[in-house]
Design a protein around this nucleic acid. Structure first.
Length: 442
RNA sequence: GUGGCUAUGGUGUAAUGGUAACACUAGAGGUUGUGGUCCUCUCGUCUCGGGUUCAAUUCCCGAUAGCCACCCCA
């Protein structure tokens, strides 16, 4: 084919092409109506349980000073170092979309003088979080957390209660195969002693470590513990465990937490390698995990104590603990389970119209019916009676109300029982009462 | 951020170097105003851009997105 002709064909093709559609920003997704019922289900469970446990809802801004997260989450964590959506406002403020919820809640606790409230202060929240990560399944750049925090109480019973509440929300939402993984990472003092021991231990065996772990040894030695590399797990096997090196107060605290959990009879697994990613955690840390198709433990949510955070954020010394989970992950888990929650919109009656005059009547009748709390459907755009009845069927309506030309003139309505197919003519004035009567008998 | 795999109608899947098959969903219809079964029809310029070729959805390169592993994390 001559080059000229080829180009011409290309041009024609181009001109026929639709304008390029715009897609979502990488890592973002729409939550469509078909999924929405699961969201409602999970969040309603969370809200209800939190309220029963005495939590009040808090909403903090999605946008905060970048410094809040630098101080809160910690500068050396990946989250702050390279995963934040940060930018400068027109006024010159350095702000970031929140990558997690706790920092904002703590900021609010201090800013609103909550330390003068009756302690402890129990707050729950839900909302979008943002992290500039490479997306994968169950991992988005915009995602939703549901979480709760208890500030102002250091009692181990509080730890147990937080874990219990987290567990309960999952149970109630139908996640019955989740496992609580639990650990204590001590306070700042005993942890730094332990860290040193750990580094000393690994440095002796540095030649047996994988490449990544050699690097990790300087940056984040606690991470070495859960390296999946065969040779590293060998080394880690006899590494010192934090549990054995907690200071007395931390040790007692953790022991108490376990006792309370036993009292509550909730199952948990001690995982001495569990290290949470955020800097602010102290003492009790836990995660709620589920094994995926490959048998790997995947975290649905996690939390822990952060007794130093309020102080580092500029408040008074205040012990605190919290938990949050990724709503998307829970939704996906439930979708995989194919939990059948019938979310189809069901109607009591369906309005069928033929012709413009009937259409007008339907509009008014619709209003009258919803005012009487009757679930009513319609299909004003559809013309044929056939397709309208098909819709009535699809919405599993119990009755169809049919108004044609004749009925519109007579001011009557045909009421059709969708199950039996029996029809009757009723005057417009009586129709609402008639429907109410019939629905009662259904 | 590094490495690998993938990209076909609304959804889930086929096949093929010569413009696409099946199932489900959705819409219209099967004579005049009646649903759930059945039947018919309709819905794709094979993600985008470039290259190789007489010819590309099919081969190659790039972009984009998704997925997987690492990193990290919810």
């Amino acid at each position: 084919m001559p080059r000229v002709k080829k180009e011409a064909i290309k041009e024609v093709k181009k001109s026929k092409r639709k304008t390029k559609p715009i897609q979502t920003v990488k890592g973002m997704k729409d939550i469509l109506p078909s999924e929405q019922f699961l969201w409602d289900y999970i969040l309603d469970n969370g809200r209800k349980l939190c309220m029963e446990f005495g939590f009040g809802r808090i909403e903090t801004p999605i946008l905060e000073q970048t410094e809040l997260f630098q101080r809160g989450v910690g500068t050396i964590t990946d989250i702050v170092e390279k995963e934040m959506f940060s930018f400068e406002t027109k006024g010159g403020d350095n702000v970031s979309l929140r990558p997690e919820g706790t920092a904002g809640v703590v900021r609010s606790y201090i800013e609103n003088g909550m330390s003068k409230w009756s302690q402890p202060v129990k707050l729950y929240y839900e909302g979008q979080m943002f992290r500039y990560e490479k997306p994968q399944s169950g991992r988005y750049r915009q995602f939703h957390h549901f979480g709760f925090e208890i500030l102002g109480d250091s009692c181990p019973a509080i730890d147990a209660q937080v874990i219990y509440l987290a567990w309960k929300i999952f149970q109630k939402s139908g996640i019955d195969d989740a496992v609580i993984q639990l650990n204590s990472i001590g306070c700042s003092e005993c942890r730094s002693v332990y860290k040193k021991m750990l580094v000393d231990y690994y440095e002796m065996k540095i030649n047996k470590l994988c490449h990544d772990c050699k690097r990790r040894l300087n940056e984040n030695p606690l991470r070495l513990l859960d390296c999946k590399e065969e040779k590293c797990t060998q080394v880690s096997f006899s590494a010192p465990q934090i549990i054995d090196h907690l200071c007395q107060p931390c040790h007692d605290h953790f022991k108490n937490v376990l006792e309370f959990l036993d009292e509550l009879e909730i199952p948990y697994v001690l995982n001495s390698n569990l290290v949470r990613g955020l800097d602010y955690y102290t003492r009790t840390v836990f995660e709620i995990c589920q094994s995926d198709a490959n048998g790997n433990q995947k975290s649905l949510g996690g939390g822990g104590r952060y007794d130093d955070l309020v102080k580092t954020m500029g408040g008074e010394e205040t012990p605190a603990i919290g938990f949050s989970f990724g709503v998307e992950r829970v939704v996906e888990s439930l979708l995989k389970k194919e939990i059948k929650i019938d979310h189809r919109v069901k109607k009591d009656v369906f309005l069928v119209q033929l012709g413009d005059m009937a259409r007008k009547k339907i509009l008014k009748l619709f209003d009258k019916l919803i005012d009487s709390n009757i679930a009513v459907g319609e299909s004003l755009g559809r013309g044929s009676i056939k397709s309208q009845l098909r819709m009535a069927n699809k919405t599993s309506s119990k009755f169809a109300l049919i108004i044609g030309q004749k009925e519109a003139l007579d001011d009557t309505v045909i009421i059709r029982d969708m199950e039996s197919g029996m029809q009757e003519v009723v005057t417009m004035n009586d129709i609402v009462d008639e429907i109410k009567k019939r629905l009662k008998n259904k």
